[in-house]
Design a protein around this nucleic acid. Structure first.
Length: 847
DNA sequence: GTGTAATGCTATTGG
DNA sequence: AGCATTACAC
């Protein structure tokens, strides 16, 4: 961005940037320079003299926020840009909640439950209530609760909500309201909020504390919301409340790219917006700067199939470009090979780099075949999403210790680690503790902390073990304010016994787990050594919290100091106790360990005694942990140049907002994309279509679509037919395949004879019955086999010779299952071994 | 209470 | 096919 940033904008963009006062809606087509407008608009505000502290900008990912800030910093300088409140809804409001938590009865250091925590809690509740988790599927229960919260229906309100109760009764799940109520109570008791609570409780806060509302209304004089089409009702109300005083609110969105309805996003928010702010200024960004004419045209024809949409005309002045290639393959693996080979060829022929390629799919499970093929080709790739680092078991175990040290009432963490590593506290003991906690309406921690007061049939041995555990956790908690994140993190890893446990496991998985722990500790180290990023809204909070901190300074600090001294002595013992361990760990490659660990009380003490800000900005463990639950893969911080030059693999959802020169959209098959679960409702199918729209509009130069006729699912081979979305693209934009086999890709024939696959278009598709008309899924099984006599294969046996249309002659080497739902394994000459379902394979017995 | 073998469930999409 | 939970032997 240059100093004359306004000159870099087209007329509409420029007007949108300059229209800073009053409500604004920017409808931004794909690739229309939306991010540019947002960043320039904020820059412009600051240039005009608006204090960055008064700007709130809500983005879809924290990474997006970080990148925007960097760009803004280039014009206005970091000292200004870092003070902008910028981040996701969840991260911004979790910070506000932390500083206001006591008002709504939460501790400042509340825990954020992730989805796994929530599900596990629901499971526990079901068990305690004697409810069947087949009827009340935890995931389903959670999404019901989530939907209620996103519509601002509390558990009390839910229990009074006739419609909700009736729905649950109809669905034969009458206890739903009760589960919701208990779930909410348990979260509260544990000092925990789930993702939806972060928004829900923000609403409670703003609703019940007018002074708080007033404060933030006047703090946020200018509000901007990106990806507005993906906000839910709860978010909508927060924004509406905050913007009520100044009405300087600017939302940016594209109804055509709304792909999060499944988690409560409400496209109606766009339409409501016009009603809420009749004085609204609307700007439509319709010129696409990203893609070729072919890609834009193709995307437009697709999205035009949707009924509900705002009128706009996305166009581009870019070059015409290449047709969209469609590839048919015969298995998920050969689809992978095709993509990998195609990337290889493109790299060779066009001097392209890995980073210019993206492979997009509908479900994470599809990544496997792609990975294997890329590995075979020696193409570096990286996967976004899927099991994130923080979801690995060993990481969650260690984090559970951290969480418990920070908030001992955290029930989910407690249950996770009270007996890991094994320390003789078994299921019976834990069950009794839970019963006691429920009976007395207190947290599990309160029970184990006073385990000797509770007469719950535990013998002295069990009580002693529980006692030992609580003492350990308390010792960790006591170190929170006195030790750096890295020091304490390392200390806990050692003294919890986790490192020892993992070190003992020499299997490859065990080693990898151990390495992951190391990686986490490295992250902690980095965090500890880096300047705290005040640029994350924390800076503002520091000022907000000054009152509180001063109090702490005056009174509590003395306690801290005293505690330090006591622990200083304790630490001496720890030091010697650890010598052996240290040796052991050194061998295990953890040389960083203990020196830094047994530290530094003395060096640290002065910090604590010092000023208020230093307490809040010390790189302590609880600070590190605050946002962990809110971190997505896309938010991962450090990214080396090497990381960057890799082929990107991700779901289409994860690709939102990104762009790549070459995009492969794979798995374009009915029941996969569009997903099977989306086929019954028009609204769901339209969302899938928008997803397809998002997928192809990620591409700058070239789009390749692929589908496979077979695919493994749950270990079974299933047959697939091409997605309706392929034929929804106007045929003039497509380069259709005729036929191909995996052998061709192996021989790279595809790339050398591209013409063979073009110009023989459409028949295969046009001849199919038109689907998508009535939105009913077509039963591929019956259709494919209607004209074939399966009965002739009843007598098929191992050893027989068979013939297949595509694979040629082969020999049956295995049979599995009962006719007609049986499987056969056939070895085909020159092709190899294939598993086929008798019902579909159209085999002929030879001889 | 602990560790292993057998069973059963899962795979939309994600902050 | 892969993972998590459960069942069962020690």
């Amino acid at each position: 961005m240059s100093k004359n940033y306004l000159d870099e904008l087209n007329p509409v963009q420029r007007r949108a940037v300059e229209c800073t006062e009053g409500p604004v809606m920017i409808i931004a087509g794909a690739g229309s320079g939306k991010t540019r407008v947002l960043t320039y608009r904020i820059t412009h505000l600051i240039k005009k003299g608006v204090d960055p502290f008064n700007i709130l900008s809500l983005t879809f990912t924290n990474k997006a926020a970080r990148e925007m800030k960097e760009r803004i910093a280039k014009v206005v300088g970091t000292s200004e840009s870092k003070n902008i409140w910028m981040g996701t809804f969840h991260s911004v409001f979790s910070r506000i909640l932390r500083s206001e938590a006591e008002k709504i009865g939460y501790p400042q250091n509340f825990t954020i439950y992730d989805t796994d925590n929530s599900k596990s809690l629901i499971k526990a509740i079901l068990k305690e209530q004697g409810l069947d988790d087949k009827v009340y599927k935890p995931g389903m229960v959670l999404s019901r609760i989530s939907a209620a919260k996103n519509n601002l229906i509390s558990s009390q309100a839910y229990l009074n909500d006739k419609q909700a109760l009736e729905e649950d009764r109809q669905a034969a799940k009458p206890k739903m309201g009760l589960i919701y109520q208990i779930y909410a109570q348990r979260c509260f008791k544990a000092g925990a909020m789930d993702f939806d609570d972060l928004l829900f409780n923000t609403n409670i806060l703003l609703r019940d504390f007018p002074a708080v509302l007033h404060k933030y209304q006047h703090k946020f004089k200018y509000i901007m919301v990106d990806e507005y089409q993906d906000t839910n009702f709860s978010q909508y109300v927060i924004i509406k409340q905050l913007a009520a005083a100044y009405r300087n609110i600017c939302v940016v969105g594209d109804d055509a790219q709304s792909i999060y309805a499944f988690r409560g996003a409400n496209i109606q928010n766009i339409f409501n917006y016009e009603k809420d702010y009749p004085e609204l200024n609307i700007f439509k960004l319709e010129q696409n700067y990203r893609s070729t004419k072919i890609i834009v045209g193709a995307a437009n024809t697709v999205i035009s199939k949707n009924k509900e949409q705002l009128k706009k005309n996305v166009f581009t002045e870019n070059i015409e470009g290449e047709l969209i290639k469609v590839m048919k393959t015969e298995s998920d693996n050969s689809e992978g090979n095709f993509v990998a080979n195609s990337i290889f060829e493109t790299k060779m022929n066009e001097q392209a780099h890995n980073r210019e390629f993206a492979i997009l799919y509908r479900t994470n499970a599809q990544s496997r075949a792609m990975e294997e093929a890329l590995r075979k080709q020696n193409i570096a790739y990286r996967i976004f999403g899927g099991l994130s680092f923080y979801q690995r078991k060993e990481i969650k175990d260690l984090l559970a210790y951290y969480r418990l040290a920070i908030n001992s009432n955290d029930e989910e963490s407690l249950k996770r680690i009270i007996n890991y590593p094994a320390r003789g506290i078994g299921d019976t003991t834990i069950d009794r503790i839970i019963v006691a906690a429920n009976d007395h309406n207190i947290s599990l921690w309160r029970v184990i902390e006073n385990i000797n007061e509770f007469d719950i049939g535990l013998n002295a041995g069990a009580k002693a073990k529980v006692d030992e555990f609580t003492i350990m956790i308390k010792s960790f908690s006591a170190m929170l304010q006195t030790h750096s994140a890295y020091d304490l993190g390392q200390y806990i890893a050692v003294h919890s016994g986790i490192l020892r446990d993992l070190y003992a496991d020499k299997s490859p998985e065990g080693v990898s787990r151990h390495e992951n722990i190391q990686e986490l500790l490295n992250g902690l180290k980095e965090f500890t050594e880096s300047e705290i990023d005040i640029n994350d809204i924390g800076a503002e909070l520091t000022i907000e919290n000054q009152d509180a901190d001063e109090k702490q300074d005056a009174g509590e600090n003395q306690d801290i100091r005293i505690k330090n001294q006591e622990e200083g002595d304790e630490n001496q013992e720890l030091r010697s106790e650890n010598q052996e361990e240290e040796q052991e760990l050194k061998e295990a490659g953890i040389d960083t360990a203990i020196n830094g660990l047994l530290f530094s009380f003395d060096e640290q003490k002065p910090d604590i005694e010092n000023t208020t800000t230093e307490i809040t900005t010390n790189p302590t463990l609880d600070l590190f942990m605050r946002d962990i639950a809110l971190m997505t893969d896309a938010d991962k911080k450090t990214e080396t140049e090497e990381d960057r030059n890799k082929v990107s693999l991700m779901t289409i959802h994860a690709a939102k907002g990104l762009e790549f020169p070459y995009v492969y959209v794979v798995g374009l098959e009915e029941n996969l994309f569009p997903s099977q679960m989306s086929l019954t409702e028009r609204a769901d199918l339209e969302e899938e279509r928008r997803l397809f729209y998002v997928a192809i509009t990620r591409a700058e130069k070239r789009v390749t679509l692929s589908y496979s006729t077979t695919r493994y699912r749950w270990g079974n081979l299933i047959y697939c037919e091409p997605s309706r979305f392929i034929e929804e693209v106007d045929a003039k934009y497509l380069d259709m395949p005729t036929e191909s086999s995996s052998r061709l890709f192996g021989n790279e024939e595809y790339a050398s004879k591209p013409k063979q696959y073009s110009n023989k278009p459409k028949e295969t598709f046009v001849q199919r019955p038109v689907i998508g008309k009535n939105l009913v899924k077509i039963n591929s099984a019956s259709k494919n086999t209607s004209d074939f006599d399966t009965e002739s294969l009843r007598s098929l046996q191992v050893g027989m010779e068979v013939e297949h249309d595509r694979f040629g002659k082969g020999k049956v080497i295995n049979m599995d299952g009962d006719f007609p739902n049986n499987k056969t394994t056939v070895f085909f000459e020159g092709v190899g071994q294939k598993q086929l379902l008798i019902k579909f394979a159209k085999l002929r017995i030879v001889g």
